[in-house]
């Protein structure tokens, strides 16, 4: 029980990761796939933040010259800022491709597109 409750943030990470992955694989709508991809990527942010968290820890800032305080590891936060930027760029590029696909095919449903693309 302790294992389940004590690691609840990791369980959420696993759940979100699988959920996002499932949406990417199972949905035929290109926009929904991007949404799934987003959830999938966001779950990893949670993993990194969980790794860096120290219980009761604060931000690594010295206040009033006080002694060494317990603080959370800031490095995963910085890494995840980078990953968020990458995620935003991927989403933007993915959605703009969907717009172009919609212009070219008149649909964003995967099965209809592959039907139109059948090699003669």
């Amino acid at each position: 029980m302790e294992f389940l409750v004590g690691h609840y943030n990791y369980w959420i990470f696993v759940f979100l990761m699988m959920l996002g992955f499932y949406v990417v694989v199972a949905r035929g709508n290109l926009v929904k796939k991007i949404v799934g991809l987003n959830i999938f990527q966001a779950s990893v942010f949670l993993l990194y933040i969980s790794i860096g968290k120290v219980l009761g820890g604060t931000a690594p800032i010295i206040v009033d010259g006080g002694g060494p305080a317990t603080y959370s590891n800031p490095l995963p936060h910085v890494l995840i800022l980078t990953a968020i930027v990458v995620g935003v760029a991927t989403t933007a590029l993915g959605l703009s491709l969907v717009v172009r696909i919609n212009e070219a095919y008149g649909t964003i449903e995967e099965d209809e597109i592959s039907g139109m693309d059948k090699e003669p």
């Binding site: 990761m17 991809l37 999938f40 990893v44 990458v86 993915g94 491709l97 969907v98 696909i101 693309d117």
Partner: peptide
């Protein structure tokens, strides 16, 4: 080319995210 790029984007992002994990 658009659908090929989209497909690559989805699979490439999954690959990169796995790597990140």
């Amino acid at each position: 080319a658009l659908t090929a790029a989209y497909q690559y984007l989805v699979m490439g992002t999954i690959g990169a995210t796995f790597f990140l994990i």
